[in-house]
Design a protein around this nucleic acid. Structure first.
Lengths: 115, 115
DNA sequence: TCCCATAGTTCAGGATTTCGGAACTGTTGA
DNA sequence: TCAACAGTTCCGAAATCCTGAACTATGGGA
């Protein structure tokens, strides 16, 4: 198991972010992480929306979000702690995440530390 | 050649928009249409950025943008007139397009009629 | 009216990406 | 040391993307 990769914020691209969030499942996961501020693990998401997602797919979805620079994952004992990188991303692309989350949900907001 | 399909604004989804704009080529095309207010035809875009795009691909890209509800295409004699649907989309998903175009370009703006 | 040139669409195939079950790694607790 | 659980990786099947070739639509001569 190779160590989890997190891109530096300068390497984060708009297209990767849009691609990551263009999948409703991933958008739901991200919205959940953004809403909670922090979400534990893949098994939390065995069911997203009305579908059961196998954990291999879930793992891939988390990887896409991670590679896009949207979340940070770190091992917390036996499970994974996921936090958003909204602060960094918002500094680089102001208003982008808020607009997307808002468009998806109508009212969910990104927990930008400075907002 | 079946008539061009344009979804009604209520059927436009966030994921389709994000997917359409998650491709840099399509984003460039859309930014161009949004910037000009109106763009003529596929051959205008034989070259996007640093790549030559075959016109079949271009046609597909325009179709994706059209199906996502981002542009309106209508035949103008022998060629195609493309206009953005920024106004409608912005009314439905406030700030979304502006944030995305801004993130891509840093300064390009969407020509929302009411803005 | 017929033919050609141009703009764009559709089709078909190969290349690429995504999905998900099975096997694996890593950690905790007994 | 072993069992249980969280999550990752592998790999084959399914879906999607790319693009050259063939096709359709329109306009302008002759």
């Amino acid at each position: 198991m190779r160590p989890l990769f997190h891109p530096s914020i300068e390497d984060v691209s708009v297209e990767a972010i849009l691609h990551a969030l263009s999948d409703p499942t991933r958008a739901a996961i991200f919205a959940e992480v953004a809403g909670q501020g922090c979400v534990q693990g893949c098994s939390t998401f065995a069911r997203v929306g009305d579908r059961d997602i196998p954990k291999s797919s879930l793992s891939q979805h988390f990887k896409v979000l991670r590679d896009a620079g949207l979340i940070h994952s770190e091992r917390q004992g036996v499970e994974m702690r996921n936090t958003t990188r909204c602060g960094e991303v918002d500094a680089r692309f102001p208003g982008l995440l808020a607009a997307i989350l808002n468009a998806y949900a109508g009212n969910k907001d990104c927990d930008t530390p400075k907002a």
